[in-house]
Design a protein around this nucleic acid. Structure first.
Lengths: 191, 191
DNA sequence: CCGAGACTAGACAGACCGGTCTGGTATAGT
DNA sequence: ACTATACCAGACCGGTCTGTCTAGTCTCGG
């Protein structure tokens, strides 16, 4: 459970950590294999025995971010009882992410923009988006929305829009209008 | 005024057309100079005498798309009188774009995800986003919103979110929930 | 007729790409 | 003590990248 100290991380874990930093900050295409292994302090052969290809390393990097986001979001949900509060908790978690100093946009949007069609990247992206949409839909239904799928889609648009705006407009407060809009849309959908 | 036939387009125009197709469909980093000049039927030296660098070609490509979108949007606005209808016309134009068969996401979001910080790409992106935000703010103000900047920001989030969703969820109808949400937010902001 | 400007074709440079392979070391299980 | 495993360092391969440069063609104004 406790975090391992840097020296005792396995080669695979160090590779994933290095990939997470470099791919997220500079883009999956810009960053070459050599920079990843250099930061991880790992031999090139080790990377290829662990992941098989760069595409698979990228997929593992996205999968890791997906799991981390899911856990963070679910942990925030647990603090509330009502579906409506739980919906807003999703946007609270988003606000936390967007206001972090090294925020560089949604990793999935960025990776998808660089991905070749049919690459394993798209699989990871679909998984992440499917989970978030499903979560929003379920909460919208529990809240009693007349059309839960429609409300979930609208909230998903706000979620994505805030991620885009935070990066492209250099404004870490983009989650605030998203949150207010979400409140208004939820109220309208329940009335 | 009339479109020139393909043969009498200047080398610069043919380069911009080729860049528009290739960069938009496959990404600005993935597509190399050689593919652009091959499609344009132009020598490499001509590209570099006309644009100076690949980055500048990308900037010109984005600038061209920005102008095209601005003209299309403004033309749609002119058909309406009331600020509220004019706001919705912005989303009508968006719906047209998203439902085109070769839609590959917002060119500015995609290019920005691939851009190195400080590259001329960011200048073009800022110009585009500043124009759209300004337009939305002005219309929101004319419509009588209590907080025009807040409403404009919210609508901008929906606009971006729909672009992202159309591409990443493979759903060209993403403008529809954006439009409905925009209606609800505008009503709430005027009430 | 002459020369300037715009253009084409393509070789070339230097860097970097993803990926493979060899060779050597350190450690742990039996 | 032997061996399997995991790992590191780095050479190497074929290919691609942006950008430069040479050399030759075509057109048009004066």
């Amino acid at each position: 459970m406790a975090a391992k100290s840097a020296e005792q991380l396995s080669a695979r874990e160090r590779l994933l950590a290095a990939a997470n930093e470099l791919f997220y900050e500079e883009g999956v295409n810009t960053v070459g294999i050599d920079r990843v292994i250099e930061r991880a302090g790992v031999a090139k052969a080790t990377l290829y025995s662990a992941f098989g290809s760069k595409d698979e390393l990228i997929r593992a990097y996205l999968e890791q971010r997906y799991q981390a986001r899911r856990e963070r979001t679910m942990r925030a949900l647990e603090k509330y009882e009502s579906p409506r509060e739980r919906l807003m908790a999703v946007f609270d978690t988003l606000a936390d992410s967007l206001s972090q100093p090294n925020y560089h946009g949604c990793a999935f949007v960025n990776a998808s923009a660089e991905a070749r069609p049919g690459s394993p990247i798209e699989t990871a992206v679909d998984g992440y988006r499917g989970w978030l949409r499903g979560l929003l839909t379920q909460l919208a239904q529990e809240a009693g929305a007349a059309d839960p799928q429609q409300l979930a889609w609208q909230l998903h648009l706000l979620y994505d829009g805030a991620s885009v705006s935070a990066r492209m407009d250099h404004d870490p407060g983009a989650a605030s209008p998203a949150r207010q809009a979400a409140e208004a849309l939820i109220s309208a959908a329940l009335g």
